[in-house]
Design a protein around this nucleic acid. Structure first.
Length: 928
DNA sequence: TGGTTCACG
DNA sequence: GACGTACGTGAACCAG
């Protein structure tokens, strides 16, 4: 075997992938160059990576010279439906040839031949001389060439494709692949194939008969009548298709094989080319200046350039966990030693232990500290023993300990490191301590690894330190026998609490250094970290609810529900548990014999709102009754009853907890209670909002962004018609209705609204068809019209999908990443789900970034306007809720509107205005 | 505990 | 040609 190894790069595939992967960028001369940049990067990456393995000795890039080839003489419809290359791609072709030459690599094309044919010819010639051949492509036509000594390299997943791949994908040996391709045809290249035959059937037929001729000769053995007839009717098409997919491998070589020899990579021509185009980040990489750094001016391409994410995780020699080494601090001298140590280190991990998961209700029970891996202590402050046999253990007096800890926790030159430090801030603020400066390992993890797993401490310790933390429940128990932390013995408490601080410090050491190389500094420092004390303040503030009003609503909803239940039982002819989907399904579809299908793996009938609405519109009385019953019981159990329980007796208000590291996209979430899903859409529901009131002498002000996600989509996808409409303040759904349906009325506007949301969610024609209750074809037609009327959306989707497949994550305009590992799932459903998430996450996430920035700036802006006592209470994704004096409404509205509308700047300049709508009233409901 | 349903953006 | 039937959340309830 010769030691020579030829690499043939399918240049056309590279170009189109580069084009669709990158946004429309221009080079230093103002010429479109996104594809040039992408192509150059990919080629550099390829050569660089191959060089580090047992690399190629010969390499060439193969391009298509023209659109007309010998195949058009065989079949004039060949590739006839293929649209011409995009307008902004055409001027990039010559630049791409320049790029290849800059690498000192031959760039080969030949009139009348497609790149695939030239590749086949070179492959044939090289194999004849016993060379190894690798074709850099994932094109299925080229897979026909696979044989011993020849494989394909799919750079998208860095996979080698050989015989096994063809067998797995098409069920046949590579030699028989041409026959399969001929039967199935190719709608993109307009290879006719045989109608009704796709990859599955084609593969099955070839496996059964051996080859195409045998299939066509053996139709009498085929049992399915439709398939048999189609094969007989279109036998000629099948034979023609066989010739169209056959690669021509006997043409003379444009350059001799030896001319493809790789002579290293002379730096000068490449440097000159990159400099001329203004590809600075790539230039830096080529010159060995290390990985791409943060974006600095110029086009956005730096942020998209691959490379930085491929660093190996740093290996830190791990100090073992030994719980017996932790110190229980019970005298002031020992405490002073630890505090001095904290000042000396300049950073210290801190964790508080309390008697309640709700920080607003919690009392401080102890504090743990850590200054180095393995070195941690616990300072018990309010332990009371088990309350039965043991006595209250000896501890430092709370006041004395806090007086000593306060200077450390507030010292400007000592960094306090916490895991979910918002909790500790809320607790400590009740004791007059304002923790600052601070870092939060939960947020570090969230801003680096969103989408790769949870961000709780136990999970992070397992993932990064390979350490299983002592579980809270093994210390305090669970369920009825659970005890509060102040009843835990000091030695158990120390093991648990000090470990938390120890783990937090270790995690901080691992995660903090990743921020800059992984381009997460901006999101962490400018958005999430500064938001922590803002949210802590909102949680402490809480919002007043009118308990009596809630109780009245509960009683009213109860009464109505009881009446409805009786009516439902009467309709059903038997009493049953209306709240049981299983029993309801059996009553509706078995006993009453209504039409409806089984759903789900559990085999229960679906009785959800769409199903019941369908029945109700068919005049089924019980369906409407059940819907009304469900609404009332839902509102009562989830809201009017539960909220009364949630009122904090000490403050008379409800204090939600905002979670910063739960949502995959950067949004907040709200729990205990969830105040982000308080009803508003129904009349019954809206009355619940009226129970959220201002304290006497104050009013509620609600400010919400109007259609922020659609505006961001218009900006991010660069859609002129949508941007203009937003700039002029037009009704965007009406505009969409006009463009898609040609007229605006109630119905078309409602449908247009659905379509607009569908686009944000990355819907399929099937999904839209279901929502609008039209056929799949009609839905596809609407989507097509939408894409043609609003060009840019298409490109955004293609570029986003290319990006996520390439790098495994998508980013917001501010650089927040959402990792989507399922994008590489072998299961189609999981993959498609990840694709929809990829389309939505940058939009939803950018919106989340913007309102978070508004929140970070809000209190200082209000204070600067002399409105320091205006209180921000809630955030509901695109809405902020405030409590203020009536005379403050006017000046505060000005400040709030300005802060919210300008929240993206100066980091991001939007090409659409952000609209802010403000309302006020005695209650949250009235403020809308 | 998992499945179902439904409240919100 | 089969597949699936919109993105992101949290809470309550039923049934096993």
């Amino acid at each position: 075997m010769s030691s020579k190894h030829l690499y043939l790069v399918d240049g056309s595939g590279y170009i189109f992938r580069a084009y669709h992967r990158l946004p429309p960028l221009t080079n230093r001369h103002g010429i479109p160059a996104g594809a040039v940049y992408g192509f150059t990067t990919m080629l550099w990456k390829l050569i660089n990576e191959l060089h580090q393995t047992d690399g190629p000795t010969h390499l060439a890039v193969i391009l298509d010279a023209s659109s007309k080839t010998f195949r058009n003489e065989m079949y004039d419809q060949y590739k006839a439906h293929r649209p011409p290359p995009p307008e902004d791609l055409v001027p990039q072709f010559p630049l791409i040839r320049d790029a290849v030459r800059a690498f000192s690599v031959p760039c080969i094309e030949e009139l009348g031949l497609e790149a695939d044919d030239i590749i086949a010819c070179y492959a044939e010639a090289a194999l004849a001389q016993d060379w190894q051949v690798t074709i850099v492509s994932s094109d299925k036509d080229l897979m026909q060439l696979i044989r011993p000594g020849l494989d394909l390299l799919d750079t998208m997943n860095n996979r080698r494709l050989g015989r096994e791949h063809v067998l797995e994908k098409f069920g046949v040996e590579p030699e028989a692949l041409g026959d399969v391709l001929a039967l199935m045809g190719d709608s993109v290249d307009n290879v006719p194939g045989v109608p009704g035959i796709g990859p599955k059937t084609a593969s099955q037929l070839i496996q059964q008969f051996g080859n195409l001729d045998a299939v066509l000769a053996g139709t009498d053995q085929i049992t399915k009548p439709k398939l048999k007839q189609s094969l007989i009717d279109h036998a000629d098409n099948a034979r023609l298709s066989r010739e169209l997919v056959r690669l021509k491998c006997d043409a003379p070589l444009p350059e001799p094989l030896d001319a493809l020899e790789l002579k290293g990579l002379p730096p000068e021509p490449l440097r000159a080319f990159l400099e001329d185009q203004g590809f600075k980040s790539l230039l830096a990489k080529v010159q060995g200046d290390g990985p791409a750094t943060l974006p600095s001016g110029g086009p956005t391409m730096l942020a998209l350039a691959p490379g930085a994410e491929e660093k190996p995780a740093p290996v830190i020699a791990q100090v073992p966990f030994n719980h017996k080494d932790y110190e229980t601090v019970v005298d002031e001298a020992a405490l002073d030693r630890w505090i001095a140590e904290g000042f000396a280190c300049g950073r210290i991990a801190v964790d508080t232990e309390t008697d309640n998961v709700d920080p607003v209700r919690a009392n401080l029970v102890g504090v743990s500290l850590s200054t180095a891996p393995g070195k941690a202590c616990y300072i018990p402050l309010a332990h009371i023993g088990d309350g039965l046999l043991s006595e209250t253990p000896k501890q430092i007096a709370m006041d004395a300990a806090l007086a000593r800890l306060k200077p450390l926790l507030e010292a400007a030159h000592v960094l306090k490191i916490g895991q979910n430090i918002k909790y500790d801030m809320v607790v400590l603020s009740k004791y007059g301590i304002d923790v600052a400066p601070y870092d939060d390992t939960m947020l570090l993890s969230y801003d680096l690894d969103a989408g790769l797993g949870g961000h709780g401490m136990d999970e992070l310790a397992q993932r990064h330190l390979d350490h299983a933390c002592i579980e809270f429940k093994t210390v305090c128990g669970t369920g009825k026998s659970q005890i509060s932390f102040d009843k835990v013995t000091l030695d158990r408490a120390t093991e648990y609490a000090a470990e938390d601080a120890d783990v937090t410090l270790r995690l901080w050491q691992l995660l903090k250094g990743r921020l800059a190389p992984e381009a997460a500094t901006r999101v962490y420092e400018l958005i999430d970290r500064p938001l922590v004390p803002v949210l802590a303040g909102m949680e402490r503030a809480g919002i007043k609810v009118d308990r009596e009003e809630l109780a009245r609503l509960s009683a009213e909803f109860s009464g109505e529900a009881t009446r409805l239940e009786a009516a439902i039982h009467a309709e059903a002819g038997t009493p049953f548990t209306v709240g049981s989907p299983k029993q309801l399904g059996d009553i509706l579809f078995d006993k009453m014999g209504l039409k409806g299908g089984r759903k789900g793996k559990t085999g229960v009938y679906s009785t959800d709102v769409t199903e019941l609405e369908r029945l109700a519109s068919d005049g089924v009385a019980i369906a409407r009754l059940v819907l009304d019953w469900r609404q009332l019981t839902k509102l009562r159990s989830t809201y009017t009853d539960a909220l009364q329980q949630q009122i904090n007796p000490a403050t008379g208000r409800v204090h939600t907890c905002f979670s910063m590291a739960v949502a995959q996209t950067g949004r907040l979430s709200s729990t205990d209670p969830n105040l982000q899903n308080i009803p508003i859409r129904s009349d019954h529901g809206r009355r619940i909002r009226d129970a959220f009131v201002a304290e006497p002498g104050k009013v509620i002000l609600s400010a919400d962004y109007s259609q922020i996600e659609l505006r961001l989509a218009a900006h991010m996808a660069d859609v002129p018609a949508l941007k203009d409409a937003f700039a002029r303040g037009e009704d965007i759904h009406a505009l969409t209705a006009q463009e898609v349906f040609g007229e605006v009325n109630r119905d078309t506007r409602a449908r247009a609204k659905t379509i607009n949301f569908s686009i944000l969610y990355g819907i399929s024609a099937w999904g839209l068809a279901g929502r609008l209750e039209v056929s799949r074809e009609e839905a596809q037609g609407m989507i097509d019209r939408y894409f043609s009327r609003f060009p840019g959306i298409n490109h955004y989707i293609a570029a986003t999908l290319g990006q996520v497949r390439d790098q495994g994550y998508v980013s917001t305009l501010f650089g927040r990443k959402t990792h989507l590992p399922w994008i590489r799932s072998a299961k189609q459903g999981e993959r498609q789900s990840a694709e929809r998430q990829a389309i939505n996450a940058p939009i939803q996430g950018t919106s989340a970034d913007i309102i978070k920035r508004a929140m970070v700036r809000m209190n200082p802006a209000l204070a600067a306007a002399g409105l320091g006592d205006v209180r921000m209470l809630l955030q509901v994704h695109d809405e902020l809720v405030f409590e203020l004096a009536p005379e403050q409404v006017e000046p505060a509205s000005t400040v709030i509107r300005a802060v919210m509308a300008g929240a993206a700047e100066p980091i991001v300049q939007l090409s659409v205005p952000l609209g802010v709508e403000i309302g006020t009233g005695p209650s949250w409901g009235a403020a809308h």
